[in-house]
């Protein structure tokens, strides 16, 4: 912990001046540290906090020649326009339904995988499973989506070859809106399940072997030990990741959705991030798109705070 200047405080100096004086002294004796971190601070000010300042254009009609500061205030005009627009409900529904689907499928699978891998007794086989399942994590989104499109092609993809082999009709996966979410979720599972299981595997190695020893003496089966020892053992990890996941329910990442998107599936694939990109960057409606983005960020932030508070009340692990 940090050193406090206790003797000085006892002399009855006002606290404020003492803190400030101590700070100046620290800067003087450790100026090199402040010099080191200065470029980092500049980065955060310019590329993180300046945009937060610039987000005020969401409440203005941005006019390029007058700049952010000089553009006229319009209060909630852009928000109102967005909430009343046809897109609002659609984006909200798509974003939330994709997130929940992903949470329901993509969240438990890595936990399950970690529990299974943890039970493997041969170290070589364990390493083999890990090497294989981690590999897709390193593919880029462009390559992943490229592979999806090739494999799911109605005429030439192997998935449809397989379906027709068993007498089925080829499915137009990419243009049939009904398939979009499943493709999005299950390709994510394919790519990330191994990688996401690492953190649970790490937590599993931290479980006291004596617990297993004792349970074995009491005649508990492997399944029962997984259920009563391993699962509770990694519960804090699960809870933290669950908080993070729920906290981002309203943010579906841009990269993969955008690449999977086409004009035929847009009614189910359009989410906040792709809409902001389309209307803002492509359509140059800066103020309106900034408002949409800000709405999204704020809802996310509130969600995260709320979930964290609830979990802390339930006396589990929490983020802070």
């Amino acid at each position: 912990m940090e050193q406090t200047n206790l003797p000085l405080r006892r002399r009855g100096l006002p606290r404020g001046s003492l803190v400030f004086g101590g700070f100046l002294k620290a800067v003087k004796s450790h100026w090199q540290l402040y010099l080191l971190i200065a470029p980092v601070l500049v980065y955060f000010i310019v590329f993180q906090y300046l945009p937060m300042y610039g987000v005020q254009i969401a409440f203005k009609d941005f006019i390029g020649s007058r700049g952010i500061w000089g553009s006229p205030w319009v209060d909630w005009k852009h928000f109102e326009r967005f909430f009343e627009s046809f897109f609002f409900e659609r984006l909200l529904w798509n974003t939330i339904s994709i997130s929940f689907y992903e949470l329901a499928v993509g969240f438990p699978i890595p936990i399950l995988l970690a529990l299974l891998v943890n039970e493997v007794r041969s170290n070589r086989f364990k390493r083999f499973v890990q090497t294989v399942t981690y590999a897709p994590h390193f593919l880029s989104t462009v390559v992943l989506v490229g592979m999806i499109i090739i494999f799911l092609s109605p005429a030439t993809g192997f998935v449809n070859k397989f379906i027709t082999l068993f007498g089925g009709e080829p499915i137009y996966f990419m243009t049939e809106p009904g398939w979009f979410k499943s493709i999005y979720i299950f390709s994510g599972v394919w790519q990330q399940m191994g990688w996401s299981s690492i953190i649970y595997l790490a937590a599993l190695t931290g479980i006291d072997p004596h617990l297993h020893e004792a349970a074995r003496v009491d005649g508990a089966s492997r399944l029962r030990r997984i259920w009563h020892i391993n699962l509770p053992g990694i519960r804090p990890t699960i809870m933290i990741l669950l908080i993070l996941n729920i906290g981002s329910l309203m943010s579906v990442g841009f990269e993969k959705v955008y690449l999977l998107q086409n004009s035929l599936n847009r009614e189910v694939s359009d989410v906040f991030s792709t809409y902001v990109y389309r209307s803002g960057i492509l359509g140059s409606q800066y103020s309106f798109s900034a408002a949409v983005g800000l709405f999204n960020s704020i809802v996310n932030f509130i969600l995260l705070l709320t979930v964290n508070r609830i979990v802390r009340k339930l006396n589990q692990a929490s983020l802070w």
Binding site: Q3, F23, A26, Q48, M52, A290, G293, L294, S297
Partner: peptide, 25 residues
């Protein structure tokens, strides 16, 4: 620990993980 002000700087940095100005700004 000798780096005074690190808690403030940490907080300012970590905050950007959870909130940002967004794409357009």
């Amino acid at each position: 620990p000798s780096f005074k002000g690190r808690n403030v700087i940490m907080a300012a940095i970590v905050f950007t993980m959870f909130f940002s100005g967004g794409l357009i700004p």
